[in-house]
C-alpha cells in the first residue's frame, strides 16, 4: 500500500513545485482555448484528470511487458483509448458541453502533460503511485485552467459559472473573451507563480520540451 507521506509528496509536486503548466509550460495548447468559461475549463480538467490518472495506471501496469522502442506508440494508444471514453461519455450525457469543447477533447491526446507523466513517472514506478501522480498532475492542470477561466469569465462576462456576480453597472471586457486575453492572463499568472515560488533550477523553466 502506498504511504501517506509519499502521497503528500506526489501531490505537492504535481500541484505546486512541478506544476506542469506554470513550471514546465506543457500542455497549454488545450489549456487556453477552453478557458473562456469556468464550466468549460472544469469539465476539461475533469476529463484530463481521468485520462491522465488511468493512462498512468495502465502504462505502469504493463511497463515490464512493453518493449522499450515502441513504448511511445503504446502510451499514445492507451491515452487515445481513454480520450475516446471521455468523448463518448460527453457526447452521450452532455451534448452541449461536447459541442462547446469541440476538437479540444480530442486534443487531450496530444497534451504533453499526460505523455510526459507516462514517460517520466509511470514508466519507472508501481501502478498505485503512478495513478496518484496522474491525478496530482491533472489537478495541477485543472487548477491553472480554472484560475485562468475565473479571471476571463469574471472580467469578460461579469459572471462565474454562468451566474451573474456583479451588478448591471459592470462593463464587460470584450478583450478578455478574445484569444489575446487568454495569452495575457496566462502570462500574468506565470509571472505571479514564478515570483511567489521561485523555481529551484533555471533549467526547469526553460526545459519545456514540446
Amino acid at each position: 500500500m502506498i504511504k501517506l507521506k509519499e502521497l503528500k509528496n506526489i501531490f505537492t509536486r504535481g500541484l505546486i513545485k512541478d506544476n506542469p503548466v506554470y513550471r514546465q509550460i506543457l500542455g497549454i495548447c488545450s489549456a487556453l482555448a477552453v478557458t473562456n468559461l469556468m464550466i468549460n475549463s472544469l469539465v476539461m480538467g475533469i476529463g484530463l484528470i481521468f485520462v491522465s490518472s488511468f493512462s498512468s495506471l495502465t502504462v505502469s501496469i504493463i511497463r515490464k511487458y512493453t518493449p522499450k522502442h515502441i513504448r511511445m506508440m503504446v502510451q499514445t494508444l492507451i491515452i487515445s483509448a481513454y480520450v475516446i471514453i471521455v468523448d463518448i461519455i460527453l457526447k452521450a450525457y452532455y451534448p452541449n458541453m461536447s459541442e462547446a469543447l469541440g476538437p479540444y477533447v480530442g486534443l487531450i491526446i496530444t497534451n504533453c502533460i499526460i505523455m510526459g507523466r507516462c514517460e517520466s513517472f509511470a514508466q519507472k514506478n508501481p501502478p498505485l503511485s503512478s495513478f496518484f501522480d496522474g491525478i496530482a498532475c491533472g489537478f495541477g492542470y485543472t487548477f491553472v485552467l480554472v484560475s485562468v477561466a475565473f479571471f476571463r469569465e469574471f472580467l469578460g462576462f461579469g459572471t462565474l459559472f454562468g451566474f451573474s456576480v456583479v451588478g448591471d453597472w459592470w462593463v464587460n471586457w470584450i478583450f478578455m473573451i478574445m484569444p489575446p486575453g487568454a495569452f495575457f492572463m496566462m502570462a500574468i499568472l506565470i509571472w505571479v507563480a514564478n515570483s511567489l515560488v521561485p523555481a529551484e533550477e533555471e533549467s526547469i523553466v526553460t526545459g519545456g520540451g514540446h
Binding site: P180, F183, M186, A187
Partner: peptide
C-alpha cells in the same frame, strides 16, 4: 525575472494575436 522565458513569450503572442484580430 518572473516574466523571463515563457512569460514574455506569451505576452508577445498576445500582442500578435491582437494584431491578427
Amino acid at each position: 525575472k518572473g516574466l523571463q522565458g515563457p512569460g514574455i513569450t506569451l505576452i508577445i503572442t498576445g500582442l500578435m494575436a491582437l494584431a491578427f484580430i
